[in-house]
Design a protein around this nucleic acid. Structure first.
Lengths: 340, 340
DNA sequence: CTGTTAGCGCGTTCAT
DNA sequence: ATGAACGCGCTAACAG
């Protein structure tokens, strides 16, 4: 078996093709690039033949070095194990491929140091644009990067970096949730969210919730966060006398998972004692108890249109930063059907 | 706001640093690379200063072009929405970062044409090694690639491509499942698997199941596949008179999801009427019914050791192809506790 | 239409 | 210990 000890570089190059076809490198380059029209039929055929014979593939590194176009898009994700991130990433990846771009994905595991490292690495690879789904705790680095390439934010804003953003219409989604719960007869609400850490979508949902409650005089509401206090928070909510039937509103998929876990631990009948609705729709939602009602995000669209924004900018669009907010879709399951 | 119309490339280069520090490019290169020891203290400091002042980052493209080392690892995944793939990928990514490599992830969506495209792209970017988790329906391309770089297979073999493989000890995992089910008093077993499509791990599990059943005279067993016939298959299993208590063995996470869905649809009491064990452990398993017993795969380890294999090869290891099989871990939940 | 030339940013001999 | 010059694989002028 052969060794790959980093030294040998036996790849067939443009020169090989040129020699085999009996032409100059320039002609091969024209054949490869967008100038194929300038070539005579005869010579084009010989080049094509040679390319196939040798299995030649142009070296994108060298190409990028010369043209300044690497056809590489970077994506920085805070938590790659979050189903939302995966779904969006899938959308981005699909769009990339359709337009001849490739995607370099970096996961920060919610770690600022790793975010820093990855940003440096992405820059070193001359990516043409960046899709960002992190807290952005390095505003200086990001700003510097933004001078070199377009950036599109996904789901979370970054302070002082005013670039395109695509995400969810959080206020609208919260409104849908509240209206649905109200219609179903719930009166006492608890919002369960992950702790506030600067994620803008997170705070927007919480703010919308408290704000809109003031517009629903028949509804009462409170907020708890996931983590060590979740269990206590849920229990006191369950036990307290309230204005009427109770329901929980999970602000995202992770909160829904944590919340459902605790509800089971405290032997809460899913979902006879209590209603439940979640923002995000995960594939197991139908399987828990009588099914969890969800507000699904159009993740595929979000990813695709993030790439679309990037592409527009790469083509020279210099319009002021845009914000694209997509609507959520209500999927009703058993968890918000009150036992009569 | 500035435009990024693909033309301007104002990045600070090695020459800029050299001039600012009043030295030659070669010295800067030595500072960047592993030859820092050869530099005088004074000059090293000046270079470091200049680098910081200018915010210089070496261009990996140019670097890779010259040295043949891009520090890029490619990973080709059949289905990025499969939690198993994500988990493994997370392991790979972590290991990559720890060793200064970056990961380019490509998703084929189980599509042969996309696999082909992605392989070409990865080659074009001069990745140093490839981690493969697909069917490998392009043996010629893969073989050609394998001449240029090391390849590590994950979970599934590829015909005629004998390179390193890391995955699960499927036979052992099936044995653990059967023994556990037997101990719990189940006698009539049904294996639910995704359809056979050439995925080696899939067939190994099915074969191990049927094979080992012959060694358990007290157990009866059959196999059904997910898809349009799953529902009928499950129903006839549930209704048929059998040698004793019944249990289902889901061959992976996807099968477990499909299977649980159907069980709900046919109003099967989860899990009083029937036992359930699944290979793979998903985060929602505790939440369904009384909890789903699982055989967890050490996905993090699998990913990390895949990268490890690659690294060894890159360092010149030419030993014959290795197979690394990890053991599964049994996690007992309610779905295999028979109601007494 | 085609070939020649000159770099892109960097690493690596050679000299010194 | 340091600098000058060449080439990695490719594209973009310029000639012809």
């Amino acid at each position: 078996m052969n060794s790959f000890s980093a030294a040998q570089r036996t790849r067939v190059t443009m020169l090989d093709v040129a020699q085999r076809a009996g032409v100059s490198k320039a002609s091969v380059s024209r054949f490869i690039g967008d100038d194929r029209a300038l070539l005579s039929e005869a010579i084009a055929e010989r080049i094509e033949q040679a390319i196939n014979d040798l299995g030649y593939r142009p070296n994108q590194m060298a190409r990028g070095l010369k043209r300044g176009r690497t056809r590489l898009i970077g994506m920085l994700v805070a938590d790659i194990r979050n189903p939302y991130s995966i779904a969006v990433m899938h959308g981005v990846e699909t769009a990339c491929r359709q337009h001849g771009y490739n995607l370099v994905v970096c996961n920060t595991d919610r770690n600022d140091e790793q975010e820093h490292q990855h940003l440096a690495a992405l820059r070193a690879y001359n990516i043409e644009g960046l899709i960002l789904n992190t807290l952005g705790h390095h505003p200086d680095v990001l700003q510097a990067l933004h001078n070199e390439m377009p950036i599109v934010l996904i789901d979370r804003k970054v302070e002082q970096l005013h670039s395109d953003l695509v995400g969810l219409d959080n206020t609208g989604a919260v409104r849908m949730a509240l209206e649905h719960l109200q219609q179903q007869g719930y009166r006492d609400l608890l919002l369960v969210s992950e702790p506030i850490d600067g994620t803008s979508s997170r705070s927007e949902r919480i703010e919308s919730f408290t704000q809109q409650l003031t517009g629903h005089p028949t509804l009462a509401g409170a907020v708890v966060h996931t983590g060590p206090h979740l269990r206590a928070g849920l229990q006191s909510f369950l036990q307290a006398p309230g204005p009427g039937p109770k329901a929980i509103f999970c602000a995202n998929g992770v909160a829904a998972l944590a919340c459902t876990q605790v509800l089971r631990e405290v032997n809460c009948g899913l979902f006879n004692d209590i209603g439940l609705i979640a923002l995000d729709d995960l594939d197991w939602f139908p399987l828990v108890g009588s099914g969890i009602t969800a507000l699904a995000q159009p993740t595929q669209q979000i990813g695709a249109s993030a790439f679309d924004c990037l592409l527009k900018r790469l083509k020279g669009d210099t319009a002021p930063a845009r914000h694209l907010d997509f609507g959520a879709q209500l999927i009703i399951r058993g968890s918000t059907q009150r036992a009569t």
